[in-house]
């Protein structure tokens, strides 16, 4: 099954959030439904990290903040070494890092061709 990057939509007011909160950031509602955030996010800012955390093999680790079409933002690893602000990226499932010898998987962001 293909994994989709999802946010959490408040059933009371409709605000979509990522990550999940137990109460809505706008109306304090407590019920949410998972919604897909889309396939074309825009890069807002990034860094190339040379002082690496545990379980990342090769510097630099490229991290960025992307904005999905509905306005929700997410931070994550970028699969490109040549990021440009404003470029379009899509979430792809993959290995993020090792932590205490355990492999951690999650979404990264890959440039749209």
């Amino acid at each position: 099954m293909e994994q989709k990057f999802t946010g959490f939509k408040c059933k009371s007011c409709g605000r979509v959030m990522y990550p999940k909160h137990d109460r809505c950031l706008d109306c304090k509602g407590t019920e949410f439904e998972e919604v897909e955030l889309g396939e074309d996010a825009t890069l807002l800012t990034y860094t190339k990290l040379y002082a690496l955390p545990e379980g990342i093999e090769m510097p630099p680790l490229v991290l960025g903040i992307v904005k999905f079409p509905g306005g929700v933002r997410a931070m994550g690893q970028l699969t490109t070494d040549d990021p440009k602000i404003g470029m379009k990226l899509r979430p792809v499932w993959g290995k993020l890092r090792k932590m205490k010898d355990r492999e951690i998987f999650g979404f990264k962001f890959e440039p749209l061709k």
């Binding site: 990290l49 002082a51 990342i56 991290l63 931070m75 890092r97 999650g106």
Partner: peptide, 15 residues
């Protein structure tokens, strides 16, 4: 949403 992705404080400051 941050830590597991390898986000550090210097990374946040850089962004």
């Amino acid at each position: 949403a941050e830590y597991v992705h390898g986000v550090t404080l210097p990374a946040m400051a850089a962004m």
